[in-house]
Design a protein around this nucleic acid. Structure first.
Lengths: 130, 130
DNA sequence: TCGTTGTCCGTACGGGTGTCCGGGTATTCC
DNA sequence: GGAATACCCGGACACCCGTACGGACAACGA
């Protein structure tokens, strides 16, 4: 951190509002944790993997790539990230590896942040929807 | 797209599940739109700006930096991004610029994706709050 | 009028992220 | 056993994103 620049705005313009915000504001750590979770699903491939697993219950990597119509490498990378974060679980049967949502997957994340948002971005915000 | 590699997995292992996933899956464009919105709030500074504006109703840039205890540049950049996306609105009074959530701000985004998530990540099953 | 304050803008830089590509491993069929 | 399949891994590359910094502008107070 540099101190060359003087601390700006020494006197709050509205001290009361600042105090209220400060007191009810999530800490930087909490915000970082939330941001981390959101970053995980802020990717078309990863979110669609979660959508697909939510719909199909269980899929292997190849079928997942087929369903999403994307490269298998992309699916592999997305699954690695999601698996590292503990959001998906895998089961091996012979030479095929099946993936599903983790048993303790936070459902609010899927319901509120994905399914609801896809409906939200489609219609009300005056988006050009065919 | 390259075709050097042979198309893997020509025959689905479980055609029915693939078909079901394919049919109920958001399109790549929809997923990209959702990812875009989520990316906007997948940043500690930006999300805390939204939290603060939700709590305090209206704040100027300097007070915002004071409340979040971050550099003023960071707040400025966050506000620029949020403003470009149309998530916040500003009002100029003299030389002070006040920011607030945009009139048509999608409340589900804030309620479901931010406030609820911060409670979720803090303690898996505890709600202490608003 | 002149200096100061609050905010915006453009640019350059460091770091993180996704994709491409090679090779590697385990399992099944002949 | 040997070949083929389905998947995993790790490095290399380009790209985007957030930050820092300097300058610019408008608005107040003297």
């Amino acid at each position: 951190m540099r101190n060359d620049r003087p601390q700006p705005h020494q006197h709050p313009v509205d001290a009361e509002r600042v105090a209220r915000a400060r007191e009810r504001l999530p800490s930087r750590d909490d915000a970082a944790a939330v941001a981390g979770v959101l970053t995980l699903i802020s990717d078309p491939t990863r979110s669609r993997v979660l959508y697909a697993l939510d719909v199909a219950e269980e899929l292997c990597v190849g079928d997942l790539a087929l369903a999403l119509e994307v490269n298998e490498d992309a699916v592999g990378y997305a699954l690695r990230v999601l698996r590292t974060a503990g959001l998906v679980a895998n089961r091996r049967e012979g030479r095929v590896v099946y993936y599903r949502l983790a048993p303790d997957f936070p459902e609010p994340l899927l319901d509120h942040c994905l399914w609801r948002l896809v409906a939200l971005t489609r219609s009300p915000a005056a988006d050009d929807a065919p």
